[in-house]
Computed example of a mutant assay.
Amino acid sequence: MEYTYLGRSGLKVSKLCLGTMNFGVATDEKEAYRIMDAAVDAGINFFDTANVYGGSGEARGQTEEIIGRWFAQGGGRREKVVLATKVYGDMEDPNDGPNAARGLSSYKIRRHLDASLKRLQTDHIELYQMHHVDRNVVWEELWEAFLVHIYQGKIGYVGASNFAGRDLVKAQYEAKNRHFLGLVSEQHKYSLLCRWPELEVLPAAEEFGIGVIAWSPLDGGLLGGNALNPAEGSRSVRNQSRAEQRRDQLESFSKLCKELGETEANVALAWTLVHPAMTAPIIGPRTLEQFQSTLRVVDIQLNEDVLKRLDEIFPGPGGDAPKAYAW
């Protein structure tokens, strides 16, 4: 496994991040344990989850609970993991009252952080991420809320997710005014089929030393290689109409991957790592077999000719801002 710094922090994380959104939904607890054990054995130390993962109602939060029970088995499991979770969503807790709705008030951050720590059976979280922007909350409230928990040792670093470029700039400006490191990461949707972040988000992240974590790097499975010919009952069946609209691109992509002797999924994942702002793509395996197939991603080197062909198949937005807008 290869490692890199998480943004401009001194924390090193694996260049593949284990996503856990399927745990408790498409992946049962026993298989989730096998995947996490295999991830640690392979050198992956970066795990991502969220307080809302696991389903709705009483199932909400069960993904964190599964991870917590895995930690509780001991054997250094917790110590070997850089743990990332998120706050923002509605946990469907009646005790939250009018504050149950999505948001990032100091009140909500405190309550939901403590609940995550309990579910995860740990006393700290390395990376606590805002799952979305809340423009009803001023940064004076946000940074003071996070700083309290940093000083208490409950969280190590603060990250963002689904922020626009202007939100990253505002966050870092306000953090600098407090002589505070600010954001170390931005988790953002980015793939060969979703390249809009190249306009504003990725350049802003690179300039401000914010490590980007790519979610949905296979675009919901469209880049996984089976979207045009899905197995019955697979998730790819639900993507079939979208895949048909992209048939020419996906067929050209498959042809290129065959020439390279690599799977479509692994090439798509390796491509995300080319951008200098990228820390890691999130891999979200449902089975141990799927997990094992992704491990060689960090060994794949895409040369300039291959990158040019990928640009031809999946054109980007035409460069970063402001050049893409002005000329």
Results as ranks from 00 to 15, higher is better:
residue 228 L to Q: 06
residue 82 V to T: 05
residue 124 H to W: 08
residue 104 L to I: 09
residue 64 E to M: 06
residue 201 V to P: 00
residue 21 M to A: 13
residue 161 S to A: 11
residue 1 M to Y: 11
residue 283 I to C: 03
residue 52 V to F: 09
residue 2 E to F: 10
residue 104 L to C: 05
residue 182 G to A: 14
residue 225 G to E: 02
residue 268 A to E: 04
residue 286 R to W: 08
residue 253 F to N: 01
residue 51 N to L: 02
residue 17 C to R: 11
residue 295 L to T: 10
residue 95 N to I: 06
residue 142 L to T: 15
residue 96 D to K: 08
residue 195 R to L: 02
residue 304 E to G: 04
residue 209 G to T: 03
residue 169 V to Y: 10
residue 151 Y to E: 14
residue 158 V to D: 09
residue 7 G to D: 03
residue 235 R to T: 05
residue 37 D to Q: 06
residue 279 T to L: 04
residue 189 K to I: 05
residue 304 E to K: 09
residue 223 L to K: 09
residue 89 G to C: 13
residue 266 N to P: 03
residue 213 I to N: 00
residue 318 G to A: 05
residue 285 P to C: 03
residue 49 T to L: 10
residue 231 A to Y: 14
residue 203 P to F: 00
residue 169 V to S: 09
residue 26 A to P: 04
residue 232 E to Y: 10
residue 41 D to S: 11
residue 255 K to V: 07
residue 178 R to F: 10
residue 138 V to P: 08
residue 104 L to H: 10
residue 61 G to S: 03
residue 176 K to Y: 12
residue 61 G to V: 00
residue 150 I to W: 08
residue 312 E to Y: 06
residue 5 Y to E: 07
residue 92 E to G: 10
residue 75 G to H: 10
residue 93 D to A: 05
residue 164 A to V: 11
residue 13 V to S: 01
residue 68 G to W: 02
residue 115 A to N: 04
residue 292 Q to D: 12
residue 83 L to R: 04
residue 175 A to G: 04
residue 142 L to Y: 00
residue 162 N to A: 11
residue 102 R to H: 11
residue 136 N to I: 06
residue 74 G to H: 14
residue 220 G to W: 05
residue 306 V to H: 06
residue 117 L to V: 13
residue 256 L to R: 03
residue 272 T to F: 06
residue 234 S to M: 09
residue 197 P to S: 08
residue 217 P to I: 13
residue 29 E to G: 02
residue 226 N to F: 05
residue 128 Y to L: 12
residue 123 D to R: 12
residue 58 E to G: 00
residue 63 T to E: 14
residue 36 M to R: 04
residue 59 A to G: 05
residue 161 S to L: 07
residue 6 L to W: 07
residue 13 V to A: 04
residue 255 K to Q: 15
residue 107 Y to W: 12
residue 81 V to M: 07
residue 22 N to M: 12
residue 179 H to P: 04
residue 315 P to D: 05
residue 38 A to F: 10
residue 291 F to W: 07
residue 231 A to R: 15
residue 11 L to T: 06
residue 57 G to Y: 06
residue 123 D to N: 14
residue 7 G to H: 02
residue 248 D to L: 11
residue 242 R to S: 12
residue 175 A to R: 00
residue 75 G to W: 14
residue 148 V to K: 10
residue 279 T to V: 05
residue 151 Y to A: 13
residue 287 T to P: 05
residue 301 Q to H: 15
residue 129 Q to K: 10
residue 231 A to W: 13
residue 21 M to N: 14
residue 245 Q to N: 12
residue 195 R to C: 05
residue 140 E to A: 14
